[in-house]
């Protein structure tokens, strides 16, 4: 196997990693602060892809960027509803009930998507500006779009880092993740903070869905397929840890990409084996926050 092929796979793996980071960063912050393991987070990612497709095809002359922005807003609104109406009722309940409630979101959102969009796989064309590719040494064609996704991931990572560590809101999120009682004792409007964080997570998942559109077939099952990988990342990275989610996303993304290259028949199992190994050896994750 030549070096240029490995470099090519590394970059492809990195673009996949950045998609994973967009989804898992939101989930890890939600889980850390709200203590809700949201099974439907992958479904919000799926909705992002479908909404992008919908706006791209129903608005005359809508560009890819406009469609993604509208899709992200739509997913954010749905996220706000889910947090504000059903989830707010069960914050004090067990993880069991919370997991099952978010699972009921999957049932509803999946079927609603099937109702409006059908069950056929849809594909989103790569935007013209980024449709090209350039040649790596060794005559490998590197799609520009993959680099664009990596750029998006890095920008979002930087913005999240700024938001979490340099703003008052971010400090509140950090404080709440460490000790929830303290927040309300300080007179913070905790429910509003929860809604805000949940919507932020939904928006990031929706963005990932829109960006993934041109790379993958858009289908109803894509949420259930990715959510376990996302949970794996959140666990490996340590619940609530942004840095952990970033590093774990790269780890899992590359592991999956190279897994497919070297062990095509076992690649499907890699994520699960990783989850099992981490949970059995270091269940608090590699970058513990609390």
């Amino acid at each position: 196997m030549e070096l240029s092929y490995l470099i090519y796979q590394l970059i492809i793996g990195l673009s996949y990693s950045m998609l994973l980071f967009l989804i898992s960063s939101g989930l890890t912050i939600i889980f850390g602060l709200l203590n809700i393991p949201n099974f439907a987070h992958g479904t919000l990612y799926m909705l992002g892809a479908y909404f992008t497709y919908f706006f791209l095809h129903s608005l005359p002359g809508a560009s890819f960027v406009v469609a993604i922005i509208l899709a992200v807003i739509a997913v954010g609104v749905i996220g706000a509803f889910l947090e504000y109406v059903p989830l707010r009722k069960i914050y004090e309940r067990s993880h069991a009930l919370q997991l099952l409630m978010t699972f009921s979101f999957i049932l509803m959102l999946d079927d609603a998507t099937k109702y409006f969009a059908g069950t056929d796989f849809l594909s989103i064309a790569t935007p013209k500006l980024m449709a090209g590719s350039f040649t790596l040494p060794g005559d490998r064609e590197m799609p520009v779009y993959s680099l664009f996704i990596i750029l998006c991931g890095l920008v979002v990572a930087y913005l999240l880092w700024l938001g979490l560590y340099k703003t008052r809101l971010g400090k509140l999120v950090q404080a709440g993740t460490a000790n929830k009682e303290m927040l309300s004792a300080l007179g913070i409007n905790v429910p509003r903070l929860f809604t805000l964080v949940f919507v932020l997570g939904a928006v990031l998942a929706g963005l990932a869905g829109g960006l993934a559109g041109p790379l993958k077939a858009v289908s109803v099952g894509m949420g259930e397929t990715i959510i376990i990988t996302i949970f794996a990342i959140v666990i490996v990275g340590g619940v609530g840890s942004l840095k952990g989610a970033f590093i774990a996303s790269i780890l899992v993304g590359e592991l999956n990409t190279f897994g497919v290259v070297f062990f095509p028949s076992f690649a499907m199992a890699f994520t699960y084996i990783l989850v099992i190994l981490v949970l059995l050896t270091k269940p608090e994750g590699l970058f513990r926050i609390k």
Binding site: P86, L100, M101, F103, S104, F105, I106, L107, M108, D110, D111, A112, Y115
Partner: peptide, 9 residues
């Protein structure tokens, strides 16, 4: 599944 999910929620 939609209606079942709604019922469960």
């Amino acid at each position: 599944m939609f209606w079942y999910g709604l019922l469960l929620m």
